[in-house]
Design a protein around this nucleic acid. Structure first.
Length: 648
RNA sequence: GCUGGCGUAGCUCAACCGGUAGAGCGUCGGAUUUGUAAUCCGGAGGUUGUGGGUUCGAGUCCCACCGCCAGCUCCA
């Protein structure tokens, strides 16, 4: 092999020789014309790159082809679509400042600094202009520049100049040019704007520059793009379908809860059926915790303000706490509690503790109140009165790991029983002023959580700076119907509050020691958890959880007595049953039962009464009805409920 | 909190350029007595989110406030 040749290895571990200076496009063409045609980018030594970049000798290269199923391919397409959007906006608004324009999970956005926010009509105009940009089919040309040239290129673009300042000296500065538009950008991009065939601008919204609410607000336009019109249509349809599962909509349709202006924003009223969901979840977690030696306590809804000052919550979260209630005389001010830690801490401190007592595990399903900013409220998922399945474990440093394992076990039981998908995040210490305690304590706490997760062999993400002010935490995150992520269970390690409250225990050495505190919630809050469950099940809850488990439908008035006998039987067994003896047709009542997502509809007519059977219509079953003796149905229901089966 | 959009009956929605609010579902009454996803007839139900303003006249235009939705920021 001579100097003018380079060797490239391919994903199937074969190698190929190409002339020096060959690009990924050349490689694709060398492999075959079909691949050359389908190629949009390449993965070079693991990094996504333009097709037109020269390949280094010895690189391992995978060609990325136009495919809606390939995240790399979509990333490149959407990044290019963001540039095409900015191109269109600059044509219509030459003075617009340009911020960032990255691809995101389901599409892309671009931020603009314009004097007037975009109206929905503006978005249509921009979309039409974007079509022209695409029709022009200008290539995306990359150029590496030095800092002074970059400064000159973006001289009248303060947002880009600010970004430029942050690029370290050892990093290559690159720009991409497509037709009239030039952007500071790391790339990569599709070969040309013509690649973007199937796209849609979705909506515009304000977004702070650099994500900092103290800085100016830019106007962000969101859009999405795919390689086929079919995938784009599917995406739009999927969003519409997802909206039908929205817990706010189902909460109304199934009469589960309401949030009313007369009561106040973020304050949930649970209707009987929604309250039943909560009661079943509470009973479940109470049993699980009791079996793991947790003890239940109750602490007051209001406490002296001094308590929250001592804990550090007041200094850190005053903005998000309900205002002070001023006492009449010398008593001083009170606050409605935003969390339970100080209360549980106070119970711990109420008497001397021995190492023999530890761990002490206190649990309380408690309502707490947080004055969340108005713009953040969201149905059941972000509320101002929240019901936490809260708990605090006070233990020795050696006991931390087994206690965390118990928490992780509980999370697993709850999530797998319900079939919920979730992921773990390890959230580490926040920035300087936002945390208490010295770094050594933080090191120990973070290390303990890392180890626990590693030993439990769990995969987890890292949320740098996402911890609580008193300690790092393991969070579990799940997604709502349209893919927004929310925090559920949380396990927080805390060496700081025990210091602040001067918690102690007497060790075997007859010396006093500081206990470690674990804050944990398995559901998180019952509001959010129920909201996620409503969307997860689309309102069709498994029998053990369903507010109404069975509805009995007599065919005519003549069968009402027989139907009532079935109802009485089921009620005496402890099940939640309704009788629908309305004078509407059977078809109408079946439809209504289906729409209300009742797991079992039992039809009772002449034949059933005589034979002592019921005609069972199980929600979602292939067979519309199955005739079985009442006893058999009771057995089936019992089995499903007791096992918390997801089947009905 | 910020930016934008929206707010009409319990729910979903309609009402041209400003001309005095209407439908379906639900609910109630009556008829019907039904065998597996909507039986028929009739009635009731609205200070058009709230408060101001412009106008002969405001659901419609203007202002303020409240709430909701999307996004941003925040989330012990």
């Amino acid at each position: 092999m001579n100097d003018s040749q380079i060797t490239i290895s391919l994903p199937d571990s074969s190698t190929r020789s190409l002339p020096s200076g060959a690009t990924a496009a050349d490689l694709a063409a060398d492999i075959g014309p079909g691949l050359a045609k389908a190629a949009v980018a390449a993965r070079v030594n693991g990094e996504l790159a333009d097709l037109r970049r020269a390949l280094p000798d010895g690189a391992s290269v995978a060609i990325v082809t136009r495919k809606d199923s390939d995240p790399d391919a979509l990333y490149v397409l959407r990044h290019s679509a963001a540039h095409a959007l900015a191109t269109a906006v600059r044509k219509l608004y030459p003075e617009a400042g340009i911020g960032f324009g990255p691809p995101i999970e389901e599409g892309f956005y671009y931020d603009f600094e314009v004097p007037e926010p975009f109206t929905p009509e503006d978005i249509e105009t921009i979309q039409a202009e974007m079509v022209k940009v695409i029709e022009a089919d200008d290539p995306f040309a990359r150029r590496d520049v030095d800092r002074s040239e970059a400064k000159a290129l973006f001289a009248d673009d303060p947002l880009k100049l600010e970004r430029l300042e942050e690029i370290p000296d050892d990093e290559t500065i690159s720009v991409y040019e497509n037709g009239p538009f030039l952007d500071l950008c790391r790339g990569p991009h599709a070969p040309s704007t013509g690649e973007i065939q199937h796209f849609k601008l979705l909506h515009a919204a304000g977004a702070y520059w650099r994500g900092d609410e103290k800085r100016q607000m830019l106007q962000r336009i969101y859009g999405t793009a795919f390689y086929t019109s079919q995938a784009l249509d599917e995406y739009v349809t999927r969003l519409e379908e997802a909206r039908k599962r929205d817990h706010r909509r189902l909460g109304q349709e199934l009469d589960l809860f309401s949030i009313q202006e007369d009561i106040g924003p973020g304050l949930v009223c649970w209707h009987p059926k929604g309250a039943r969901l909560q009661l079943e979840l509470r009973r479940w977690i109470e049993d699980l915790l009791t079996a793991r030696k947790y003890e239940f306590v109750f602490t007051p809804h209001i406490s002296s303000e001094a308590l929250f000052r001592k804990s550090g919550h007041l200094p850190n979260y005053a903005e998000n706490m309900y205002p002070s209630m001023q006492g009449d005389g010398e008593e001083g001010a009170f606050r409605v509690k935003p969390m339970n830690c100080p209360g549980h801490t106070t119970i711990y401190a109420a008497r001397p503790r021995s190492y023999r007592d530890l761990p002490i595990r206190l649990s309380e399903i408690a309502n707490v109140y947080r004055y969340e900013r108005s713009g953040t409220l969201h149905g059941l998922l972000r509320v101002r009165m929240l019901t936490m399945d809260d708990g605090h474990v006070f233990c020795t440093p050696e006991q931390v790991e087994p206690e965390i394992f118990t928490c992780l076990e509980l999370v697993d039981i709850v999530m797998s029983t319900l079939g919920l998908e979730y992921r773990f995040d390890l959230s580490t210490r926040p920035d300087g002023e936002k945390r208490i305690g010295d770094d050594e304590l933080w090191d120990r706490a973070e290390e303990a959580l890392h180890q626990a997760l590693d030993r439990a062999e769990l995969e987890y993400g890292l949320d740098e700076g996402g911890g609580a002010f008193y300690g790092p935490k393991i969070d579990i995150k799940f997604k709502d119907a349209i893919g927004r992520e929310w925090q559920g269970a949380t396990i927080q390690l805390d060496f700081n509050l025990p210091e602040r409250f001067d918690l102690e225990y007497v060790g075997a050495d007859n010396q006093t020691h500081r206990p470690v505190m674990i804050h944990r919630a398995i559901f998180g809050t019952l509001e959010r958890f129920t909201g996620v469950l409503i969307e997860h099940f689309a309102g069709a809850f498994p029998p053990w959880l369903a507010p109404v488990q069975v509805r009995v439908l007599p065919i005519t008035d003549a069968h009402e007595e027989g139907a009532r006998a079935v109802l009485d039987r089921l009620e005496s067994e402890g099940y939640r049953v309704e009788l629908d003896s309305r004078s509407d047709t059977l078809g109408y009542r079946i439809r209504d039962g289906e729409l209300q997502k009742v797991p079992y509809l039992l039809v009772v007519g002449e034949r059933e009464i005589e034979a002592g059977t019921v005609a069972v219509r199980a929600r979602g079953a292939d067979k519309k009805q199955v005739i079985m003796p009442v006893d058999d149905f009771v057995d089936r229901l019992r089995e499903r409920v007791e096992s918390k089966s997801l089947q009905n």
